[in-house]
């Protein structure tokens, strides 16, 4: 089986990279690589609902926030919570939530996001129309409002800090590899085909016996699960989280990545994540105060103007992005024939 050999080689190379990356790159570069890795996890899972299933959603920042908060609360020790919660005492639930295991903390974050995704699916997917986008957009704001108004859980606007855990690229790289493989396994199965059929023509999919509600919900929950885990990783990487951190900006960056890589293409998403993240770093100077004598706050204004123009231009002139909805390997298959 050619594909077995090919897949094994791919996995071996990926594992080798994850294993040796820490030795090769310095700590600043490793931080960037970790960040890119986490964004790749988020973008891959975002592409499942947006690209493969074709349901326009703006959920990532909400689910990332849920994953980040659950993971952070689980990893913080009881004493540090008591010290940290300045506005009100932490709720007993918060105090009782603790684990020393990063894996468990991440999983709980992922599962929490998945459950919320299921709850959002009920109102949104039972009706036709594009309500998913607006409901998920609203949900991102609700999470923030909830976090600010419930300091006994979240320490309010002050957020949580000193989220300490010995994270390294083994975690980020390993979870990225797993996410990538899971996504491809879904796409190349009857579930992935059903998701694509819903994207292409919902009525025809229904006429083939596909339960479109179930398929959309499944895709949405899967995206949420990995976004929750990605959120946990992000919290551990940057060690400080506040409600304002998970703004729509995060979702917008992921949207650009997914669109640029090609809606529905996982390998395209990987490539685009690197391009966009490195591009964002490279264009950071644009947001320096007083460039062009304009905007003076540390808000990514001009950079975001450029990136939103890129998004619009891609949509208008190159809707399929880098790889369309195909994977890199599909191109090799084609050329062999």
């Amino acid at each position: 089986m050619g594909s077995l050999v090919r897949n094994s080689i791919f996995i071996a190379v990926a594992v080798a990279f994850i294993y040796f990356a820490g030795d090769v790159f310095g700590s600043y570069k490793m931080f960037l690589i970790n960040t890119i890795g986490i964004y790749a996890i988020l973008a891959l899972s975002y592409n499942l609902i947006n690209g493969v299933t074709g349901q326009f959603s703006l959920e990532p920042n909400g689910f990332v926030a849920i994953g980040a908060y659950f993971t952070a609360i689980l990893l913080l020790s009881t004493e540090s919570k008591i010290d940290m919660y300045a506005l009100v005492d932490p709720s007993p639930i918060v105090l009782s939530m603790h684990t020393g295991s990063l894996a468990i903390a991440l999983l709980v974050g992922g599962v929490a996001a998945t459950i919320i995704a299921l709850l959002l699916s009920l109102p949104v997917f039972r009706v036709r129309g594009d309500y998913l986008a607006i409901v998920t957009l609203g949900f991102g704001f609700i999470i923030r409002i909830f976090a600010i108004n419930n300091p006994e859980f979240t320490n309010g606007a002050m957020g949580l800090n000193d989220i300490s855990s010995s994270i390294n690229f083994y975690w980020v790289g390993g979870i990225l590899l797993i996410t990538f493989i899971v996504m491809l396994n879904i796409i190349y199965s009857k579930y992935g085909r059903a998701m694509k059929s819903v994207r292409d023509d919902e009525d025809a999919a229904t006429a083939m016996g596909i339960n479109t509600f179930k398929i959309k919900t499944l895709a949405f929950m899967t995206s949420a699960f990995f976004e929750g885990i990605g959120g946990g990783l992000l919290a551990v990487l940057i060690t400080t989280i506040t409600p304002d951190q998970f703004s729509f900006l995060l979702t917008f960056q992921l949207l650009i990545i997914v669109v640029l890589g090609g809606l529905g293409s996982m390998s395209g998403t990987l490539i685009a994540t690197i391009l966009v993240m490195v591009g964002m770093e490279a264009l950071r100077f644009l947001d320096e105060p007083n460039i062009l004598g304009l905007g003076n706050e540390a808000h990514p204004g001009l950079r975001m103007v450029i990136f939103s123009v890129i998004l619009i231009v891609v949509m208008l002139f190159a809707r399929r992005g880098l790889l369309g909805d195909r994977e890199l390997l599909d191109f090799f298959k084609k050329s062999k024939k």
């Binding site: 085909r193 694509k196 059929s197 994207r199 292409d200 023509d201 025809a204 999919a205």
Partner: peptide, 10 residues
């Protein structure tokens, strides 16, 4: 269907 409705991308 009256106007063929295949899954276009597949």
């Amino acid at each position: 269907f009256q106007n063929i409705r295949l899954f276009k991308s597949m």
